[in-house]
Design a protein around this nucleic acid. Sequence first.
DNA 1: ATTAGCACTCGACGACACTGAGTGCTAACG
DNA 2: CGTTAGCACTCAGTGTCGTCGAGTGCTAAT
Lengths: 343, 343
Amino acid sequence: MLTERQRMILNAIIDDYIRSAEPVGSRSISKRGDVGFSAATIRNEMADLEELGFLEQPHTSAGRVPSIKGYRYYVDHLVKLGEVSDQDQQKIRSFFTEKMNQMEEVIQHAAMILSSLTNYTSIVLGPESFANSLKHFQLVPISDDAAVAIIVTNTGHVENRTVSIPPDMSMSDIERAVNILNTKLTGVPISRLKSKVHTEVGQELGRYVDQCERLLAVLDEAFKTDDENRVYLSGTTNMLTQPEFKDVDKVKTLLDLFEETPTLMRMFASQSHANGIQVKIGTENSHEAISNCSLITATYSLDGVSAGTIGILGPTRMDYAKVIGLLDLLSKDMAVLLGRWYK
Amino acid sequence: MLTERQRMILNAIIDDYIRSAEPVGSRSISKRGDVGFSAATIRNEMADLEELGFLEQPHTSAGRVPSIKGYRYYVDHLVKLGEVSDQDQQKIRSFFTEKMNQMEEVIQHAAMILSSLTNYTSIVLGPESFANSLKHFQLVPISDDAAVAIIVTNTGHVENRTVSIPPDMSMSDIERAVNILNTKLTGVPISRLKSKVHTEVGQELGRYVDQCERLLAVLDEAFKTDDENRVYLSGTTNMLTQPEFKDVDKVKTLLDLFEETPTLMRMFASQSHANGIQVKIGTENSHEAISNCSLITATYSLDGVSAGTIGILGPTRMDYAKVIGLLDLLSKDMAVLLGRWYK
DNA sequence: ATTAGCACTCGACGACACTGAGTGCTAACG
DNA sequence: CGTTAGCACTCAGTGTCGTCGAGTGCTAAT
């Protein structure tokens, strides 16, 4: 579709623009050396590229700027995976050798590494909880009518929730129930806890415990899968250093988006279906607030099941080569780390 | 020190400036009606007030702007506690009748209410954990060499931490130890857990459990008071709507400060000594990033012990009357709520 | 097919004048 | 004597104009 020369020129323009954030003219391309043609020739090609929709002109007497289509072509055909610099590799290595014993900590750290290495905003989605199974369940009464339900998963993750209990339910009943639940439910995936309680464990429970229905209601409350697969952000303020965000209004809409976890989740979910690296450029993103941003995500899997997603949000004019290389490396390392984690 | 008229004029100027964010001139004060003097008279007084340091002039032919000293005088002598509007009272009431069963949730919500009612940024510090005591302790092994330590407090707060355990420590030992700890430590304040383990419980433990020293090390790790008295922020982006933050650089330094929890903590700590409402204006604040902001905090106490702090951060040109009134009301309500909570 | 040359476009920038809000001072007023 | 009307003055903000220069498109020469 494009001639070799056009591709070279497109590549050069995008390269330049990523660095300078300013419309690039024919002369500067010609002078770069890697395209050995005169400014005039490049000018002609640029006119063609614009007609084809790969470039845009802010105004008549300005240089050219890549269009969404241009970026798309660039990431699909032109960009060569950036090698991760030794320095960065070093940092990542030391991250993975560091000992962390909370899942949350790992994710949080990964996000921080990403944002600090790229100077963009990083978004990390934790490994889906459905991989986890119950290790231990506990109900600790804290007053006459309330108790804390605690769920420990095999990965060491702890969830807790305050539930209200009927005032006339006896302590011994509760203890007995907890014991039964622990023997019956240990090893059951978190996502199936609720149904399992009703189908299989329910009757057993009824035999030993008074007021079984009431208790079941309490358990329902406790096992409510609060899908707080939280999204971890880091480097949100990095965006403010980008020239495309010198306008406070844009900053505000972006930051407001960051606060809206559910929206972020949805954005991410739509990406995480496919495995590997995905790039959404500008208006390809569903949300308007990031219509001048690109979102690059890497979904890694564990035993063939997609397990988590890490991503970088930056201006459309972002360093795709570097970011893609980095995400590729880090997502693979994450998969390995988690593989070991889950044993 | 100031004549009655000067005070009226100062009050009027600050009032106007809070509303308009623009230097206020003598004419506009004169026209307001509540100061019944001509522009010329007011002009003379304004010159005096400037000489005394209560006002400042951005440039010769502009109106006057309150100085830090001016604001100080205003909040100390002039401002009359703003009545909280019916609408706002309504919202606060409904907040307090809402049923919440996690401490974190309450605090988070309080912060949100505050920021939404004021359109500034709210900062809330949770009730100091020293008021809490141990309700239940548990060690759940999740692998050969790791276990999750879970601490439940009398208020239903759950802390958890992964600890590594010596591989040759037997399950039964652990169980026995946990039992002893629960009988001995229930009711002990969280802050004193660690010392208590060493002094009183240690010997008892040694009698029943092998490898007592090793176990103590594990417990030390578990009881490490991770002083995560977290700071809850809400409405951080509200600041961006303030005209004093139309400059992205200022926004960035401010937002970066928000990310630095320890610094925020320190800022807050210095305020929370005194009880009641405290106002720090502009450079009275220690941190440079908020040298054009004011921080108003209300510390509430429970049984005479200061329990928590809620605060509002806004531009120096903020609506002191409203904010102070609101904080006063809310902090008292919080104290009541928590009093009930701790029973 | 490529390139040198040239006329043309248009935003950025500095110079300049104008406007208007606001001041300080002085003199008149009650 | 305190208050106020009047007036000259200051200065940020705004709009206009001309210049500059980077960049373009087109044409003709190589």
